[in-house]
């Protein structure tokens, strides 16, 4: 209800964003991006969906000299299957994983089926809220390496491989070696994360994902993922993977609990035993919203709880 007589009209407002000064470049090709990264090294920062980097810059917690916006590059987007692996391009936005579709070798798009086809949407819905999921990217989340991030937990649980490019080179990094500590990965400053390769899970796999957070869309206080392969003839667990996020600097695998499951037939007692040994394996670091101790962790990790794939 502004004054209609002499009052001010809507003018360019005081621009309320306030990062420190930086140079900005938006290369058209992966090669150009790699050149810039090579030239500026740790003075440069890749900008993908900006959902983690931009807030940090506005708080001036991150003060990169050069921003390399990869939003205009071709070739880093989308999913495809080859050689038993699902390759997720780094620029694939979270929302795309809510209804994952792969590009076939002849260029068509078809829904991703199978166990991953139902697991990925079940996990994707826990990532932030819709406005974040349509901007933030799978690769950005992996490179950002928040220990409670759903995709980081998934990557660690399924032993994903990260594909890193640098000028004139490429390497694959195993998840175990990729996540070093909170917000820190083994990616070199000159490297660009191009894609993540997830193993395609056969029909004999069963998965579950469960998360405890204070509000819908929040980062998890704790989240857990399980994936087990069943001997279909006998019903015995032939392979077990349990990953947890939010309890340490990186997403962790719970070897003892996995061992408890191996070679056994699933049952409520077995799940309880696995949960018990899982609780013994983690010693959560407290923060403002989570120093609840082990009971919570044990429950959240019971296989079969939450989403199933």
């Amino acid at each position: 209800m502004l004054d209609d007589e002499a009052g001010p009209q809507r003018r360019p407002a005081v621009v309320a964003v306030k990062p420190a000064r930086f140079a900005y470049t938006a290369p058209d090709t992966v090669e150009d991006a790699l050149d810039v990264l090579d030239r500026f090294g740790d003075e440069a920062k890749v900008l993908s969906g900006g959902q983690s980097l931009v807030p940090m810059m506005n708080f001036r917690l991150a003060r990169p000299e050069v921003i390399v916006d990869i939003g205009h590059l071709g070739g880093l987007d989308g999913m495809s299957v080859s050689n038993g692996a699902l390759t997720v391009g780094a620029r694939t936005i979270h929302a795309r994983l809510e209804a994952p579709a792969v590009t076939t070798p002849d260029g068509r798009s078809e829904p991703l089926g199978g166990v991953l086809g139902s697991l990925l949407p079940a996990v994707a819905r826990f990532v932030g809220h819709l406005p974040i999921r349509v901007r933030g990217t799978f690769g950005g989340s992996i490179a950002h390496a928040d220990p409670a991030a759903e995709w980081c937990i998934l990557a660690r649980t399924l032993d994903a491989e990260m594909v890193a490019l640098r000028r004139g080179g490429e390497r694959a990094i195993a998840a175990e070696d990729f996540f070093e500590t909170v917000f820190t990965t083994s990616l070199a400053p000159e490297e660009l994360l191009a894609a993540v390769r997830l193993p395609v899970l056969g029909d004999d796999w069963r998965t579950g994902f469960c998360e405890f957070s204070r509000r819908a869309g929040d980062f998890a206080v704790v989240a857990a993922m399980t994936a087990v392969r069943l001997e279909l003839a006998t019903g015995v667990i032939a392979e077990a993977r349990i990953g947890v996020g939010g309890v340490a600097g990186v997403p962790v695998r719970l070897g003892d609990a996995e061992a408890t499951l191996m070679g056994e037939t699933p049952s409520a007692d077995l799940h309880a035993a696995a949960a018990e040994s899982a609780a013994g394996e983690v010693d959560p670091v407290g923060d403002l919203h989570g120093s609840l101790g082990r009971a919570r962790v044990a429950r959240a990790r019971a296989p079969g709880a939450g989403a199933s794939g």
């Binding site: 209800m1 001010p8 809507r10 003018r11 360019p12």
Partner: peptide, 12 residues
Amino acid sequence: GMFVGDIGGAAA
């Protein structure tokens, strides 16, 4: 709507 932040034309 016209909020204070929409008025503009001012030093910060």
